[in-house]
């Protein structure tokens, strides 16, 4: 069997099973949808919950992105270290070292402490 076909078949099976759960729930569940207020431990909402959420760790997301870009190069790098030799390791860890300096700076500035 072609690998691609096998993976698509498995995804299809997963989709079918999930659909079956919803279908079964439709058949066996008590009919009608109960409209509810969001659970606020017995309280009534004063406004919609959807809002511009104060993401206090936004500074971390920036540092994260710097590393995440880096990771894309690290997967192929892992394959060629043995053939490229010392230079590959030196270059990669110099780059990682620079990024880590950034992390150190961000840490000193309190980017990882937001509470």
């Amino acid at each position: 069997m072609e690998t691609f076909v096998a993976v698509v078949a498995l995804a299809g099976l997963g989709g079918a099973l999930i659909t079956a759960v919803y279908a079964l729930s439709f058949l066996t569940g008590v009919r009608g949808t109960l409209g509810v207020a969001p659970f606020l431990s017995g309280g009534v909402p004063r406004e919609h919950a959807l809002s511009r959420f104060h993401v206090r760790w936004y500074a971390v997301t920036m540092v994260f992105l710097a590393f995440d870009m880096e990771m894309i190069f690290m997967y192929p790098w892992a394959l060629v270290v043995a053939s490229m030799g010392t230079m590959a390791v030196v270059e990669m860890f110099l780059f990682l070292g620079l990024l880590l300096l950034g992390v150190l700076y961000a840490w000193r500035e309190g980017a990882f402490r937001w509470a």
């Binding site: 079964l24 729930s25 066996t28 569940g29 008590v30 009608g32 949808t33 509810v36 207020a37």
Partner: peptide, 12 residues
Amino acid sequence: RALVQQRRRTFA
């Protein structure tokens, strides 16, 4: 329990 339960929808 999940399968016999009535469906439920939060506001908006």
